[in-house]
């Protein structure tokens, strides 16, 4: 077809595509414009407003937000023992969740990536992501049942002759449920990291005299570390921001619960905003550390 050869017959689209082909910057603008706009307004804008709000205050009499600048919210946070305890509890459980997730994810991912046959690998990875197909709340309520005083866990333990545990509505049950919830998000990047290691590196290590444990420690683990750190970002940040798990399976407060109550019950948005800067700051530090370990090349 010679439509391109006859200028009069060139369609609008052809001309437009030829024009765009020449104008690289315009093309890039069309490609990235909408998402960048979304990021700038909805994401960064909201974050900026959050920080600004943190410096306003609630009128103690009318409970209305007044736009009076000051750092009184942060003072309240610094003085209040309870807020420090809650922040430490949240970060502590997030760290514990992350460590357990990583310890569980390494063997699963390694088996799936390096040992399992393709069929087993598919089944295993499917099993890991399967819970993500069902509602978060449904899964939480089923864990409530499992962990409750005469629930499935204690029933099984008693049948096995171990006696029962009273961990329902405790930090233990919160930890168990967090690990359950975020494990897939840790397994996937760790799996990808293990899978990316070329076979020849395993052979080279054996060739140079290493048995498997040494190969794992000296070659596999260091090479997978960025992937492991990348996975830990998920489990850590998701725990840091969650307020439903503590509410449904625990009896302690997390940062998210305080924020939720400040906004929803007390209408003290400025205080909620101030407290919300704590996980943001913790996460910023975490990400800085993660970048140092090369986690962003592994994402």
């Amino acid at each position: 077809m010679s439509s391109a050869a006859v200028p009069g017959q060139r369609s609008v689209f052809r001309r437009l595509s030829a024009w765009l082909f020449a104008k690289r910057r315009t093309k890039l603008g069309f490609l990235l414009g909408p998402p960048m706009l979304w990021m700038a307004i909805v994401y960064l804008g909201a974050l900026a407003v959050l920080f600004l709000t943190a410096f306003w205050r609630q009128d103690p009499l009318t409970a209305e937000v007044t736009r009076q600048w000051g750092i009184q919210n942060f003072k309240t946070l610094a003085d209040g023992e309870v807020y420090r305890t809650i922040a430490l509890r949240t970060a502590g459980i997030a760290a514990a969740t992350t460590i357990i997730c990583v310890i569980l994810a390494i063997p699963i991912s390694y088996y799936a990536a390096r040992i399992a046959k393709p069929r087993t690998r598919t089944i295993l990875l499917l099993a890991v992501v399967l819970p993500l197909w069902s509602s978060y709340l449904v899964r939480l309520y089923s864990w409530r049942v499992i962990l409750s005083g005469n629930g499935f866990l204690n029933w099984s333990l008693e049948k096995l002759g171990f006696g029962s545990l009273s961990i329902s509505y405790s930090n233990w049950s919160i930890l168990i449920v967090f690990v359950y919830l975020w494990l897939p998000y840790v397994v996937l990047p760790v799996y990808a990291a293990f899978e990316r290691i070329p076979d020849s590196l395993f052979e080279a290590s054996a060739d140079l005299g290493s048995k498997w444990p040494k190969t794992f420690r000296r070659v596999v683990l260091p090479m997978a570390l960025p992937g492991i750190v990348a996975g830990s970002i998920f489990s850590f940040s998701l725990t840091l921001g969650d307020y439903i798990v503590p509410q449904l399976v625990g009896n302690t407060q997390f940062i998210g619960n305080v924020i939720y109550q400040s906004v929803g019950v007390a209408n003290n948005v400025p205080f909620a905003a101030a407290y919300a800067t704590v996980p943001v700051a913790v996460m910023a530090l975490y990400l800085l550390g993660a970048r140092k370990m090369g986690a962003f090349e592994a994402l």
Binding site: S200, E203, A204, A206, D207, L208, K211, M223
Partner: peptide, 20 residues
Amino acid sequence: LPPYDRDVNTVFQDYALFPH
């Protein structure tokens, strides 16, 4: 015998250098 019990060494086609 496994590779680590043999007195031979290999230069691999893709070099197989440890990148880290």
